[in-house]
């Protein structure tokens, strides 16, 4: 330990990320070899969820901003893509940047209002803005309204139907997830990330140091919204379907669950959280159609039984696994 430890909240998570990425890269190979084709689709879905959870973790874990409307950005990305596909302009080169722009713009505008508040009010406002997006999707009568819209197909790439191949689509999703993981990993350790973290702990202090906390948070919020929009782009293509339900507030709650179970502020934990969520959903819904009757109390128990807050427990567990002491 010659170089002083700057961040106390997390250890170097370089190797877990590498192992995780390698593992994910091999899934289609193994699936093809063992003729378990549905693994590819299921893992694709998991990675899309992970991407969305990752985007939330940027503002929640590092920024300390509990957004309860994060599904809105997914919905915006998905609808932008879906509408463009229906209008015959669904090429990746148009749909992808447009999804990012739309979700980023929404984050920018709503962020200007929401980031003026804090605490409970911030939670409620993001929830309300999320609902706004949800109702906007419902009002899109020409594109299915309440029922949602089944798409004609997936985005083309330079006019080629590359993404219809689920292996190709898998690797596109994988590349997006790996790219965003790398980006956020670097960002959280760079100057920007440290300012965001400082503002989480002590915003007034950051301002007296000369930082414009509002601006930094807004930047993080927009970036987070855009990554969630990217997840929306992928989701629309993956399911070939868009629905207001993508932007529903329960979705936002699910995302929070994923981030927390994976460990707040641990970026690769968002991937683990998404995986856990999907496994729980698959496993419990196999038991009963009323799986949420089990899932709900599981969440409650998880919160109640983890004394000193969930973050504390995750940190303790991680310390234990790393063989370090905890004080």
């Amino acid at each position: 330990m010659s170089s002083p430890l700057i961040f106390s909240t997390k250890r170097s998570s370089f190797w877990p990320v590498v192992v995780l990425c390698l593992g994910l890269a091999l899934v289609p190979v193994v699936a093809v070899l063992t003729k378990q084709g549905h693994w590819v689709s299921l893992t694709t879905q998991m990675m899309i969820l992970a991407l969305a959870a990752l985007s939330l973790d940027l503002i929640l874990g590092i920024g300390g901003l509990l957004s309860f409307g994060h599904a809105a950005f997914i919905g915006l990305g998905a609808y932008t893509t879906g509408i463009l596909i229906q209008e015959g302009k669904g090429d990746l080169l148009i749909a992808l940047p447009m999804s990012l722009v739309v979700s980023g713009l929404f984050a920018f505008v709503t962020g200007i209002v929401a980031l003026r508040t804090r605490g409970v009010v911030f939670i409620m406002i993001t929830l309300a803005f999320g609902q706004m997006a949800y109702f906007a999707a419902q009002a899109l009568y020409a594109y299915g309204g309440d029922d949602g819209l089944t798409l004609d197909g997936r985005s083309t790439v330079f006019g080629l139907k590359l993404l219809s191949n689920k292996i190709v689509f898998y690797y596109l999703t994988f590349a997006c997830l790996a790219g965003c993981l790398l980006l956020l990993q670097r960002l959280s350790r760079a100057r920007f990330g440290r300012v965001l973290l400082g503002a989480r702990d002590n915003a007034v202090r950051m301002e007296t140091l000369g930082y414009d906390v509002f601006r930094v948070r807004l930047m993080a919020y927009v970036l987070s919204g855009m990554i969630a929009g990217l997840a929306g782009f992928l989701l629309a293509n993956h399911t070939e379907f868009v629905s207001p339900a993508y932007a529903a507030w329960q979705r936002s709650g699910d995302l929070i669950f994923m981030v927390i179970i994976g460990g707040v502020g641990s970026l690769w934990g968002a991937v683990g959280g998404a995986l856990t969520y999907l496994l729980l959903e698959e496993g419990l819904s196999g038991l009963t159609e009323h799986w949420k009757v089990i899932f709900g109390p599981l969440i409650i128990l998880f919160v109640l039984l983890t004394h000193g807050g969930i973050e504390g427990v995750v940190a303790r567990l991680r310390d234990m696994m790393a063989g370090g002491r905890h004080d």
């Binding site: 170089s3 002083p4 430890l5 700057i6 961040f7 106390s8 909240t9 670097r186 960002l187 350790r189 760079a190 100057r191 920007f192 990330g193 440290r194 300012v195 973290l197 400082g198 702990d201 002590n202 202090r205 950051m206 140091l209 000369g210 930082y211 930094v216 930047m219």
Partner: peptide, 30 residues
């Protein structure tokens, strides 16, 4: 102060505020 950073991290954060590029996205600070 910022309690979750080290003493050095706190002061470095203050130094950073006056740096040419206070908001880098890529280079690790530590």
């Amino acid at each position: 102060i910022v309690p979750s950073l080290t003493a050095l991290g706190n002061v470095a954060l203050a130094v950073q505020a006056g740096a040419d590029k206070p908001l880098g996205f890529w280079t690790p600070v530590d």
